[in-house]
Structures are given as C-alpha cells and as structure tokens.
C-alpha cells in the first residue's frame, strides 16, 4: 500500500465485514512512535483462525484463497522496527463483549515508514460505505487532536443519512479544518 491510510481503510473493512456496529480508529503519535488501532465489536475470530491471520493464505474472502490485508500491514509495521498485534474475542465464547482490536506500531523516523497519506479520504470512504455504523475517529499528535464521532452527527441529522453527498462533503471539510488547527 502506498499510504498507511489505505491499510487503515482495508483493516476497517474487515470490521465492517465482521458485522460491527461500532468501529473506532485511533491514531496516536508520541515521539518517534506512530500507533494505529482499529477496534470493533464485530463477531470476532476464533483462536485457531486468529493464529493464522498474519499468514497470506488465510482469508475470509470466498473468491480467492489468499488474503493480503493483515500481512501487508504487518510488513509495513515491521519494516520500521515496529510490530502488529491482534486481539480478538469470538461471539461464540464471548456473547456479551466480542470483537477485535488490531494494533500496529510504527517507528516514524525511519526511511521505511509509509506516510499516513489521505486519512480524511479513508474516513469519508468508510462512512460512505457503511453509514449505519457508528464511526469513532481520533488522531492525537503532540499538537492536539482531531476527532469525529458519527453519533454526534446523527443526532443533528435525524433521518438524513450520513452518506448523503453533501453530508460527506461537510465531514471531509470539517476534518480538513480540524487538521489545519493542529498543523
């Protein structure tokens, strides 16, 4: 992937596929460390599947027997000296609090760090595709925080859907301005 934000989009798609109704994307920058985590309350993974998810020959897709999403993220993290961790609780064992947390840690100050890229576009794309999900986005840097919770927007929008084109444009512009503030 050319941008880390594309990995984030890809990983969050797994959460959508897992039937989550709340998905949190949390980015934290402190010193040389860039941490991203995608947390969902989807169906989760069973332990034996969890053990194989970093293997490209493990996938949930049905059109092909290869899944590159997690292995690509793992590679992107490890090539900076960072790491990837996935914690998951499957709904069969945890009917009340199932879900998955995928966390990748990167060392920003290496030539092999993939730039974050257009994360705003990633957030807008996710909301466009799954407006029924509660999306919580937060990006903390030493200069401040950019955050968005679609539940707050829904409270104002009522029955106008989040994927209405004008609403999506507003969300994009809102995030752009929020990023300007912490530039």
């Amino acid at each position: 992937m050319k941008e880390l934000s594309l990995n984030i989009l890809d990983i969050a798609m797994n959460s959508v596929k897992a039937g989550a109704d709340t998905i949190k994307i949390i980015l934290t920058e402190t010193g040389d460390i860039f941490k991203m985590s995608v947390e969902d309350n989807g169906c989760g993974m069973k332990e034996d599947f969890l053990k194989t998810v970093t293997d490209p020959f493990s996938t949930t897709r049905t059109t092909r027997k290869v899944g590159m999403g997690i292995p690509l993220l793992k590679l992107a993290a490890e090539q900076t000296g960072g790491s990837l961790s996935i914690k998951s609780r499957h709904e069969s064992e945890y009917p009340e609090n199932h879900g998955t947390v995928t966390e990748a840690v990167f060392n920003k100050n290496t030539v092999d760090f993939t730039p974050l890229g257009d994360v705003i576009s990633t957030v807008v794309t996710l909301i466009q595709g799954s407006p029924g999900i509660r999306w919580i986005f937060s990006h903390k840097t030493p200069k401040g925080e950019v955050s968005l919770d679609t539940d707050e927007l829904k409270a104002i929008l009522g029955d106008v859907p989040l994927n209405n084109p004008e609403v999506l444009t507003w969300i994009g512009d809102y995030l752009k301005e929020a990023y300007e503030e912490i530039k």
Partner: peptide, 22 residues
C-alpha cells in the same frame, strides 16, 4: 473495495463517483 481494489487505487475512484454524481 477489498484489499486488491484499495491497493490498486479504488478509494479515489469511489470518491470521484460520489462527488461527480452529486
């Protein structure tokens, strides 16, 4: 919008459709 699509550049394509249709 699976891994293959995203890696190949589906995100700007999707956003262009949303924007231009509107």
């Amino acid at each position: 919008m699976a891994t293959c699509g995203i890696a190949a550049g589906a995100r700007p394509v999707l956003n262009a459709f949303v924007e231009e249709v509107s």
